[in-house]
């Protein structure tokens, strides 16, 4: 058992943003949430981490309502990586990763070998062990995102929630981040924009439109030309190069003079 939502609703400014979503996340699998801008992906993720309170419905973790879990217990179990979390504070890479130990330490607890070990392991898993002391502000976008994932790993979670972790990254770093996320073997929920990346890296895909979950299943089941046309309003052709390797091609009609 892991995360699940039942008829979850959330509104902001009188507008329904998440409208009755019921889904079950499978343990140790990657669930991708896709949908157009404003479809409620980020809001749903924030409801999953209890960063926002559900207006109605319930989010459960191991069949327990997450609203009943103590904050720190939840943070030791479930970690969240934001789209682009920045800071003005002068921090080093290990300072940022150390923040992940916050839920494991009391107000006056001193830094222990267990904490240090967790930070080292986390930095190794994202491949940044050598950058331990580098100032955060000198990192590239991809490196910053990996440091955030390392910070999340230092929380030693079983569930990892990522909000568009590939945003603003070049294609090499997009692939690297998602390969990393897949290899972690954690239960992951990832909001993604790129349909090909979702098809490539997710075990399950949930499609949101207007705050509702309109499709849920394996990428093969869900990402059909019909559904993509309906939800995203674009025409696509899907090719399968080798079995299971699907490519979603966007059909764009060029103006007659374009290649003249």
């Amino acid at each position: 058992m892991t995360l699940a939502t039942h008829e979850v609703r959330w509104s902001a400014g009188g507008q329904m943003i998440v409208d009755g979503v019921t889904l079950t996340v499978e343990p140790n699998r990657v669930l991708g949430l896709i949908g157009p801008n404003g479809s409620g992906k980020s809001s749903l993720l924030r409801l999953l981490c209890r960063l926002r309170k559900v207006a109605s419905g319930v989010v459960t973790l191991d069949a327990r309502d997450i609203a009943d879990l103590p904050r720190r217990e939840l943070a030791r179990r479930l970690a969240f990586v934001e789209q682009q979390a920045a800071t003005e504070v002068q921090l080093s890479v290990c300072d940022v990763v150390r923040l992940g130990r916050t839920p494991h330490r009391g107000a006056f607890a001193s830094w222990t070998e267990v904490d240090e070990h967790a930070v080292d392991i986390a930095l190794k898993r994202v491949g940044l062990a050598a950058r331990h002391d580098q100032p955060w502000h000198t990192l590239s976008g991809g490196e910053r995102q990996r440091v955030h994932i390392a910070r999340a790993l230092a929380q030693e979670p079983r569930e990892l929630i990522l909000d568009e972790p590939t945003n603003h990254l070049d294609i090499q770093h997009q692939l690297a981040i998602l390969t990393l996320v897949r290899r972690l073997g954690l239960t992951c929920v990832v909001a993604l924009h790129d349909l090909n990346l979702a098809s490539l890296f997710c075990d399950r895909v949930g499609v949101l439109a207007g705050g509702r979950l309109v499709a849920f299943g394996t990428p093969q089941e869900v990402l059909t030309p019909c559904l993509i046309a309906e939800v995203f309003g674009v025409e696509v052709v899907i090719r399968e190069s080798t079995p299971g390797r699907r490519h979603i091609e966007y059909v764009v009609e060029h103006e007659a003079g374009d290649h003249a």
Partner: peptide
Amino acid sequence: FGTDAAASL
């Protein structure tokens, strides 16, 4: 990294 980051910790 902001209030959401703090809350998630």
